[in-house]
Design a protein around this nucleic acid. Structure first.
Lengths: 230, 230
DNA sequence: GTGATTTAATCAAACGTTTGTTTTAAATAA
DNA sequence: TTATTTAAAACAAACGTTTGATTAAATCAC
């Protein structure tokens, strides 16, 4: 029953197509991937795409849906804990610092480093920047919940109602400070003459970006004053 | 000679192709635009693409090169003025506040509102997020100069050497707070139930994002304290 | 249990269309 | 004329999709 290998042949080719689709769509984008490439690299037959998913777009949609399902453990519980922490920190805004620091650490590790996300993160970034017709799958599944949680953080820190548009805009600016290191990674690599991310570089980025984010909403990192003394 | 209309037939079809290419590539992306679509919407002939640009990719390259040329007046002088201002503000970091505020106002108006940039901005964003083989044209022409200027601002405010990697990372986080409103505009629109940007909404975003950026590097907006009093 | 039947899945081949490019010849300007 | 520029047709290659035969597995009657 609960084996790693699929129950029958059908599920196996289905999963092989989903896996190849995730990787290829992530690297090259939907339009640039051909059905023949998908079947070649997944070791399946050309007709399997239509049989299992009703066509190329059906496969793409299934890839997005599977992504939302598979990433649930990485987001759902964490975001819930943050919402809970906010309720307990109404008196002192500084109590939210570790919450934000923790979120930043998780997101950066997940999006820039984690092997599990190495194809999934770029695909989310791709849809983030150039939404396809199936964008809503990712938006409703992953993006909106994260955005709403960050909005709640901003609202708590700024002491404004969560439905104040400023809070969503603030949240957007915060998220911008995070996703830019994923979306525009090539720009940063060129600027710093890097050939990619390493754990050390991601750690450095995480530290700096966390300071930047905390300061941007008027918080200081738990240690000392904002940015630096002087 | 210096008429608005091109000197001869050749330049006219050339410009028509560049114009249609800019618009179509911007909206749909390189792969999704066909040569027939380009010639139909530009009112030219199929053979003109090969004759004038050597092919579809040559046209795309020419579009990027033309973009860099046409946007020069909007960036070159402004960035130079900022570099000059930095040299004059070594004593007091707060002197850089109006410099940053001015830059933010220009960038937001340009990228979210200006008709001149309505096709150019999305194309830059597209290359920004998913670099093509011709990315270097935009990078060297527009992105790197802007990134270096923002790095210089960060270095001046943080009182660190410009070649300290932290300054480039800080600059990247600052730019992230700006471009996220262009790249991920759809996300913000969905969150706030907007159907697009209006001058009022852009003004609001500009205000909030400018506060966010200033705070992120430890500056306060010229008026009062960071974020709010309390 | 065994053989017959149905269902599900895979396969190679080919479908018609569209892709980017090239060729050919007519039209235009100098 | 002579060199450009345009228009239309034609090119091979690649596209997503469909077909019909075939294989493997599950279901059934007995």
């Amino acid at each position: 029953m609960s084996k790693d290998t699929p129950a029958n042949r059908g599920d196996e080719t289905r999963n092989q197509l989903l896996e190849a689709g995730l990787r290829l769509f992530s690297i090259h984008g939907y339009e640039s991937v051909s059905t023949r490439q998908l079947t070649t690299e997944s070791g399946t037959n050309i007709a399997a795409i239509n049989y299992h998913f009703g066509g190329k777009e059906g496969l793409y949609r299934a890839v997005l849906e599977q992504l939302v399902i598979d990433t649930e453990p990485y987001f759902g519980p964490g975001l819930q804990k943050i919402q809970d922490s906010i309720s307990l920190a109404t008196d002192d805004r500084q109590k939210l610092v570790p919450v934000i620091t923790g979120l930043m650490n998780n997101l950066f590790r997940l999006f820039l480093e984690d092997d599990f996300m190495c194809w999934r993160a770029p695909l989310v970034m791709r849809e983030y920047a150039n939404p396809s017709e199936n964008f809503d799958i990712l938006y409703k599944g992953r993006i909106e919940p994260l955005h709403k949680t960050v909005t709640a953080i901003a609202a708590a820190v700024l002491k404004k109602p969560v439905d104040d548009p400023e809070c969503a805009v603030r949240a957007h600016a915060i998220i911008g400070q995070i996703v830019v290191f994923g979306i525009a990674r090539v720009v940063l690599w060129k600027r710093l003459d890097w050939d990619g991310y390493t754990p050390e570089r991601v750690a450095m980025i995480t530290d700096i970006a966390t300071q930047s984010v905390l300061n941007s909403i008027g918080l200081s990192s738990s240690a000392g004053s904002p940015v630096e003394g002087n």
